[in-house]
């Protein structure tokens, strides 16, 4: 464990807590893409299949349970909670995310580290996580204005992957034979997808203006 990875994991946890806070505090999920939340739940379920077979550390197991539990709680909230689900922008959240699932799974069947069920689902979760934010970014552009908590949610989500890139660089230079090119490439693509959002987020913060994404 290094400081970059710890910072990345904590930033990731913060992003989920910000989202849960927004939903519970405002009893609203407007501006949040249910499709992105469903994709993240799928990412964690596919990635943590080894939850009960490989014990890495207490920290690792606890964080996996928190990520799976919180992502399912958000999806449940947006689908079933009678007050929250009313504010879901169903008509704006129209990204066909099934293509992202299918594409990631096909890619995982072709490009993986080992042809085992666990490794294929792991690669699938890595690829899917890289594109899971797309429905959310599309929804933000369509809904025009971004409320603070949703903007912070996307910002922390992008920052977490940027910290992971620093973690991979650190591990590459400190651990011999550390090769995780599936994560590296996918992580770079994922962070690049946030780049334009970061730009507009930073500009709005600098000009102290409300975050407006170009339609």
């Amino acid at each position: 464990m290094n400081i970059f990875r710890l910072a990345g994991d904590l930033t990731h946890l913060i992003s989920i807590l910000v989202l849960l806070l927004k939903i519970y505090a405002t009893k609203s999920c407007s501006g949040i893409s249910l499709k992105t939340q469903e994709l993240y739940a799928l990412v964690f379920l596919a990635r943590y299949l080894d939850l009960f077979t490989d014990f890495v550390s207490v920290y690792n197991t606890v964080m996996k349970l928190v990520f799976i539990g919180s992502s399912l709680a958000i999806v449940w909230c947006m689908r079933m909670h009678r007050i929250v689900k009313r504010s879901y922008n169903r008509e704006l959240d129209t990204f066909r995310h099934y293509f992202l699932v299918a594409g990631s799974f096909v890619l995982a069947l072709v490009v993986h580290e080992k042809f085992t069920l666990q490794e294929i689902f792991w690669a699938f979760s890595i690829y899917l996580e890289a594109v899971a934010i797309l429905p959310q970014l599309v929804l933000l552009q369509r809904s025009g204005n971004v409320d603070n908590l949703t903007g912070q949610y996307v910002f922390f989500l992008g920052a977490y992957r940027a910290f992971y890139i620093l973690n991979w660089i650190y591990r590459y230079f400190t651990e011999q034979r550390f090769g995780r090119w599936i994560s590296w490439i996918s992580g770079l693509v994922q962070t690049a997808l946030y780049a334009d959002f970061f730009y507009y987020y930073f500009m709005s913060w600098k000009n102290n203006a409300k975050l407006q994404l170009p339609a």
Binding site: D9, K64, N167, R177, F178, R180, S183
Partner: peptide, 10 residues
């Protein structure tokens, strides 16, 4: 090369 048999990252 992968330096461990399982994924130690989240």
């Amino acid at each position: 090369l992968v330096n461990e048999k399982y994924h130690d990252e989240l």
